[in-house]
Design a protein around this nucleic acid. Structure first.
Lengths: 160, 160
DNA sequence: AACTAACACTTGTATATACAAATAAAAAAA
DNA sequence: TTTTTTTATTTGTATATACAAGTGTTAGTT
């Protein structure tokens, strides 16, 4: 019943039904917010058939990147794409689905060794082309120089 | 104990410690994600001393914009900046802090009339200059033409 | 008038996230 | 060696959000 986010097709002023023109600084803030929400929503839709949240997928990607070496909680947390309050509970969910294993590190019993299972690797293989397509899809409307420019401007904006 | 998000000072590749260069489409996706996270984190910090979440502030802004007219749940939800699953519970929180009032609409008892209180208006007045400063702060590093360009590119990107 | 559908909102469940406190093991200091 | 501190992780509580189901009210249909 509740609305989805505003996605494609509108300018910021239309979206919030503003009567007064917005300052450019406010427009950009909202634009970034909407764009991120849209990206995230589409990504989560992609994960849904696999019963994975975006965060869970991200953990699996990190574990695959370890190429067989176990990852502890700290390492997973450091590599998470965005923020992560609670790697423990994320790994719990993956464990229940048999996508990872978890064991206490024998050398240092404070640490935990997390490994991706074959089932986890299979799920990722399945998702790989879909994720690539998802990523490329957003960039379709812009030319390569425009994409480079957008990236540069975002980095400059962010590093204020 | 847990890490905060990556904020200023890094390029995407540094942030995720990638060994292989990222495709531009992936870089932009991550850049937008980080930028939004940073914005949001700073905004929430601003709200913290007032014991308001960003969403709660947003509802108060909508109610103030009503200029004395009551807002029902549907209207609030429609005007929310991003997404909103659960206006009811957001308004509940504001009610507990005496920042809004809530009554059943006498003409249509399915509807709820929400109004901002004087206390709510006072909190917003206090926050106004701080929010403005927060918003302008992000745009400092870019020139006006660069800001316009960034805004245009984001809109084009989003409307794929 | 009784039945059905639509509407407006509420409630329940699950995940994600922030923050703080708790636990357990290891390392450092006394 | 005992005590203290640091490290690694877990647990608890609160908010935000997605989604589905439930409740009460009004409108529309037969």
């Amino acid at each position: 019943m509740y609305q989805q986010i505003r996605t494609a097709g509108m300018k910021i002023e239309d979206e919030i039904k503003s009567t007064v023109p917005l300052a450019i600084s406010k427009k950009i803030i909202l634009n970034i917010l909407y764009t991120q929400n849209m990206q995230n929503e589409k990504f989560n839709e992609l994960m849904k058939p696999y019963d994975l949240s975006g965060e869970q997928y991200n953990v699996l990607r990190i574990l695959r990147g370890q190429k067989g070496n176990p990852a502890n909680m700290n390492l997973i947390q450091e590599r998470m794409i965005a923020k992560t309050s609670n790697t423990t509970r994320l790994v719990d969910k993956l464990l229940l689905k048999n996508l990872v294993t978890r064991n206490v590190c024998p050398e240092n019993r404070r640490k935990i060794e997390v490994l991706i299972t074959q089932k986890g690797l299979d799920v990722l293989s399945d998702l790989d082309p879909k994720v690539n397509e998802h990523e490329d899809n957003f960039s379709k409307n812009l030319t390569t120089p425009e994409l480079e420019l957008l990236n540069t401007l975002l980095e400059k904006y962010r590093n204020h």
